Simulated assay, not measured.
Amino acid sequence: MSQVAQMVHITKELSGRWTIPILVTLEKSGGRFTPLKNTLQIAPSRLSSNLKTMTESGLVQQISPFERNHPLLPEYELTEKGRFMKEAALIISHSESQLGVGFLAAKAWNWPVLMALYHSYHEFNSIRQLLQTATPRILSTRLSELHEGSLVDKILMVDPTPKYTYSLNARTEPTLEMVNRELLGIL
């Protein structure tokens, strides 16, 4: 897998409203369910669902009843992959604060699209091929939202046939350069 594909995969795996907050907060809460729920202000069913998904993807693991502080209360810990993804999550979180446009990772495909644009995938179909599982509709929606959020420039090319190309704007590019450099540093 190429480095570009790896970075797109990492940012895709970090997408979702609760993935980054759970990764960043899990160890601070001692891995316990209730303190994590209270810290994140998340519904128990939502936290349970997210932890199940993160367990299935290998980011966290549930500690056995014999190893827990309290045998009846669930506890979780980051796996090796989870610790790596936590580092990536901290990079993404820091860059989102620099961009100042809110929590981009909350929506699927925002960061993978930005990484594709950073790596010179400027046409819709080339971005779609890189992202593989993104539907045309979701890709179109994310490109429009990123354009409306002043992160991406949308340019109409008329020769030889009319089409749009996309690129990071001057304000976004330095932040994505930093993200790319730091993600490469932890790969």
Rank of each mutant, 00 (worst) to 15 (best):
142 R>Q: 14
108 A>R: 12
69 N>V: 07
169 N>A: 14
41 Q>P: 06
83 R>T: 00
16 G>Q: 07
161 T>G: 03
55 T>W: 03
15 S>P: 14
133 T>W: 03
152 V>P: 15
113 V>K: 04
69 N>Y: 05
171 R>W: 08
122 H>I: 11
93 S>C: 08
25 T>M: 06
46 R>C: 14
42 I>C: 13
148 E>C: 13
122 H>A: 07
23 L>D: 02
81 K>P: 07
119 H>C: 05
94 H>D: 14
32 R>M: 12
133 T>V: 05
57 S>G: 12
171 R>K: 02
147 H>K: 08
75 E>A: 08
43 A>S: 15
98 Q>I: 03
35 P>F: 01
170 A>S: 14
159 D>Y: 06
127 I>F: 09
80 E>H: 06
108 A>E: 03
100 G>D: 12
79 T>V: 00
16 G>W: 11
177 E>A: 10
55 T>E: 09
170 A>G: 05
120 S>P: 04
185 G>V: 10
164 Y>D: 15
51 L>F: 07
65 P>S: 13
119 H>G: 04
186 I>V: 10
8 V>Y: 03
137 R>F: 08
148 E>V: 15
174 P>V: 02
85 M>N: 10
107 K>Q: 13
25 T>P: 04
105 A>Q: 04
74 P>W: 09
55 T>R: 13
117 L>H: 07
101 V>H: 12
31 G>C: 13
151 L>W: 14
36 L>F: 11
123 E>P: 08
87 E>W: 10
126 S>L: 05
80 E>I: 14
58 G>W: 13
21 P>T: 07
117 L>P: 02
174 P>S: 03
94 H>Q: 10
146 L>E: 08
91 I>F: 06
95 S>W: 06
73 L>C: 05
68 R>L: 09
42 I>M: 14
109 W>P: 13
75 E>V: 02
187 L>T: 04
137 R>L: 07
88 A>E: 09
156 L>T: 15
135 T>Q: 13
10 I>Y: 01
162 P>S: 00
87 E>N: 04
13 E>K: 03
12 K>Q: 09
1 M>N: 11
126 S>P: 02
73 L>I: 02
95 S>F: 01
25 T>V: 05
135 T>R: 13
62 Q>P: 06
81 K>M: 09
61 Q>W: 04
56 E>C: 15
173 E>A: 12
44 P>N: 02
57 S>W: 10
131 L>T: 02
4 V>Y: 00
5 A>D: 08
23 L>C: 12
111 W>R: 10
87 E>M: 12
14 L>K: 03
179 V>N: 02
158 V>M: 12
56 E>D: 15
162 P>H: 09
89 A>N: 09
157 M>H: 08
170 A>Q: 07
162 P>M: 01
66 F>I: 11
